[in-house]
Design a protein around this nucleic acid. Sequence first.
DNA 1: CGGTCACTTGAGGTAGTTCAAGGGGCGTGG
DNA 2: CCACGCCCCTTGAACTACCTCAAGTGACCG
Lengths: 219, 219
Amino acid sequence: MASLGAAEATHLRLQALARYAGARSGDSRVVDNRVNQVVLVVEGAVKLIASVSGGRTHVMGFYFKDDFIYLPARETHAYNLCALKDCELIAFPATEFIRLAQNDRALNNNFISHLLRTLGRSREKTIALGQKTARERVATFLVSMAERIGSPFSNGALLDLPMSRRDIGENIGLTIETVSRQMTELRNAGLVSTSGRSQVKILDLAALKQEAGHFPVLT
Amino acid sequence: MASLGAAEATHLRLQALARYAGARSGDSRVVDNRVNQVVLVVEGAVKLIASVSGGRTHVMGFYFKDDFIYLPARETHAYNLCALKDCELIAFPATEFIRLAQNDRALNNNFISHLLRTLGRSREKTIALGQKTARERVATFLVSMAERIGSPFSNGALLDLPMSRRDIGENIGLTIETVSRQMTELRNAGLVSTSGRSQVKILDLAALKQEAGHFPVLT
DNA sequence: CGGTCACTTGAGGTAGTTCAAGGGGCGTGG
DNA sequence: CCACGCCCCTTGAACTACCTCAAGTGACCG
């Protein structure tokens, strides 16, 4: 909760509001979505999924330690959080959270800049899905993950991806097969190497960014 | 500026901050994008475009009277507002705007709920671009426009679209030809009729929503 | 060590793009 | 008011990126 940057006084009130939620890897509907929620990831990794008509589902994004999620109440279609690993989360009902934030400049500012960042990422992603080829999307995804959960490594990064190929595909609007093929091509091109299902080593981050079409953060 | 819902006291300060901008139809770079801006559309219609690598450009959205736009400063790629008709706009530097809003509960709340709505729409659009077919996208676009600038008409709506087919295509991630073909198919299916370049009559809104895949507002 | 399930690879199909050629609005000038 | 011309839009035909369907392969778990 420290990462919310609230003052001491607000802190206590936030605690009164908070719903702690633990989750095991694979759990879905981790947080109550009957009202808008602000969710903080204390530990672990989650995906935000949207269930859409026709049984389709779209992965809106992936979130990791210290990330901050705005989870809208179910409406025309349902948003839900699913755990990708064992997780610790804290959820606040959005309305009360916002009201509280108004009494605390730092928290209010934090919340607003979080929203702006989220909006920025969402717009980037819109562009990606509207304009990019499969190759560019996969490259963009990897670059983004490198920036968010990668450990630096020579002139690249080391990644341990907690999500499946299916999750990746549903996130960037491709089928699982296409994701797989693009990964293979990137491997053949010498840009990445993989071991096991989840370990990815980015060998040349600059070149990968080139492949990504110079776009910034996705997800 | 009334639509900002600020109290009297804040009003004066907002006026001090405001940059009024008139624009003629077709004008681009209507608002200074060297700093983040909050822009209010007083009159007219604008598009928010993102210029991306490879000379590609994506139309992030269309905005009309009383709409509220968050225009990020140019960064990895440049966002710009272009006038689709003659316009009157008011721009506020975002940082100062947010600071001011903190002293005015109503304004702060309005701003936050605007951001949440924008984020919601952006997410909807992400889903649309990630999952929908050309037919669904065009239908979704028309439904959205009907809700935003349509005048009711029997069991449909009357539309006067200020944007070109190219703009539409760049907004929903299709080529101009595909947009055109889908429009003719919708016409042949008896869901819409058109006259001239910009007049669209939606004959059966319910059926069009069906075509759209039950999705809510796009753009 | 053996089974399951995720991932990979291949072959064929299709939605949408690309390239190219006509119509037809709509503004302009007579 | 009508004629002219530009440019947007429409339509057609060929192509291609991605999807779909199907069959391996190998990672991870018991």
